[in-house]
Amino acid sequence: MPMSSVIWYLYEFARKSWAESFAIAKTNAEIVETPERFRDFPQVFPEYCIACGACIAACPAPHAIKLIRSEDNTEEEGRTYPVINNRGCIRCGFCAEVCPTDPKTLTCGENHLIREDFTILPTEKMFVIDDYLCIRCKKCVKACQVEGAIVEEDNKIVIDQSKCIACGDCLDSCPVKGAIKGIYIDHVQEQKDIIKIIVNSLEESIEAKRDDISHLLDDEVYRFDFDIGDLVDRARSILSDDDIILDIFQKITDRLKLRIVTWDDEKCNRCQLCVNECPSGAITYNEEEDVVIRDAEKCLRCSICYQTCPFGVAGYYVARFLLDPLSLDTGVIHVTVKPSQLPIGAD
């Protein structure tokens, strides 16, 4: 009986499959290999970052992403870019999905459907408080639904972007027009282009009316209306979203104060006082032809030449704008130009 069981055991272990698998037994390669679709911690390419904060707004984990800014050096300004904290990251890849730059600043595994029409930003806007206009009434702090999203720091009211959920309640509660702003955080470059177009064409339109405004007395104002139809068409060709365009128009007309410098060569006596005062080197004296030349491209509109010139060559005017009614189709920008109240004279 014992003999038979020993034989049975030997027979059982001597089977070919047993011997074969014993001979080739080794650690599987699968243990260390990851499949091609494996979503690891996100990779960051700082050079593409536009510091929009979309990844932070999107990230479900509170400690995973921080936007940091490297120090300025002599050659270039510090660069802002996201940093992934592996100890907080949950590897969901949502930051890579919402990242608006092309190519992506953040990549995470293989996300096939990173397509423009699916890039759902969890928030369209980012809210910031303009400290210049803020009257510290703290109505927004009371209106805010999120504990600690709007806080007082160093006597300033600031929005903590890591906590803000961009609901817009603070905007409704604010009594000062323009003190809280909702900034659209996608299409940043397009927004910049539209702002440039609007400001440039407004300035050109005022420059064209130089003859009218140069005769203004100190307490007189000059008003004219500017039709935005042409601007809207150009803006729409850049960006198709009317909401964002209207938002830009409104912000510019609320906040923009254009300073206009006019230059009357006939009054100039070549005293060259302004040449040395100009901080940007926009005014130069040409000895051969005996003329003082102002380069409008370089001009900073700082008004120093206006305050320096004894003969009134430089004129200095301030223009304010108002969009009324608030719509892209029927809206007209009302422009008001008035002479500056700054003191004149070299001393």
Binding site: P60, A61, P62, H63, R87, G88, I90, V146, E147, G148
Partner: peptide, 29 residues
């Protein structure tokens, strides 16, 4: 770090290193 739970409204007291010394960490979720 407390992962996604360490947010306003939850009742977690991460990290563990506040309570006992931790010798090694393995991040990932």
């Amino acid at each position: 770090t407390g992962d996604v739970f360490n947010q306003e409204g939850s009742s977690v007291y991460a990290p563990v290193s506040d309570f006992i010394p931790v010798d090694a960490e393995i991040p990932g979720c």
